[in-house]
């Protein structure tokens, strides 16, 4: 009797090192690691703010340490890499039409970057002005 074909063949743990697309996939997956670090920093800030003025000042000092700034710069780069790969997926997963005409994929991608800019402007309006 022939064995039925295996639905889940066992892959070696290093399967993703074998092709650059797989490596890019794993890099994209790994963008959440610096994100988690930043989210924990943000939660620390929330906790500091709850405790009071001194704790908030101490949190700002913590955020200023070189290693923390370096990790958050990495998180910023990771968020932009995630955005760049995520935005091109949108028109592929859900092509939009306006009446009978399809909206160009590039326009959908550009629209999402405009969203990123708008949030940036909102933050500037909230925290960037004197």
């Amino acid at each position: 009797m022939n064995r039925p074909p295996d639905a889940f063949p066992r892959l070696p743990r290093s399967w993703w090192l074998k092709h650059r697309y797989f490596k890019a996939y794993m890099l994209r997956e790994a963008t959440v690691l610096p994100l988690i670090f930043f989210l924990l920093c943000l939660m620390g800030g929330l906790w500091a703010l709850y405790r009071g003025e001194e704790a908030w000042a101490a949190w700002l000092v913590f955020m200023r340490s070189p290693l923390v700034v370096a990790l958050n710069l990495l998180a910023l780069a990771a968020s932009l890499y995630h955005a760049a790969t995520f935005f091109v997926l949108f028109p592929r997963v859900m092509p939009l039409r306006l009446g009978r005409r399809a909206i160009a994929p590039q326009a959908i991608v550009a629209g999402q970057w405009v969203g990123v800019m708008i949030i940036g402007l909102l933050f500037f309006w909230l925290f960037g002005r004197t």
């Binding site: 930043f38 920093c41 943000l42 923390v68 958050n72 999402q112 990123v116 933050f123």
Partner: peptide, 17 residues
């Protein structure tokens, strides 16, 4: 993560420190 976090990280993880 894609739309809101870049500005948040820029302002609180980089610019403020």
């Amino acid at each position: 993560f894609a739309v809101l976090l870049p500005a948040t990280i820029l302002f609180f993880g980089v610019l403020a420190p």
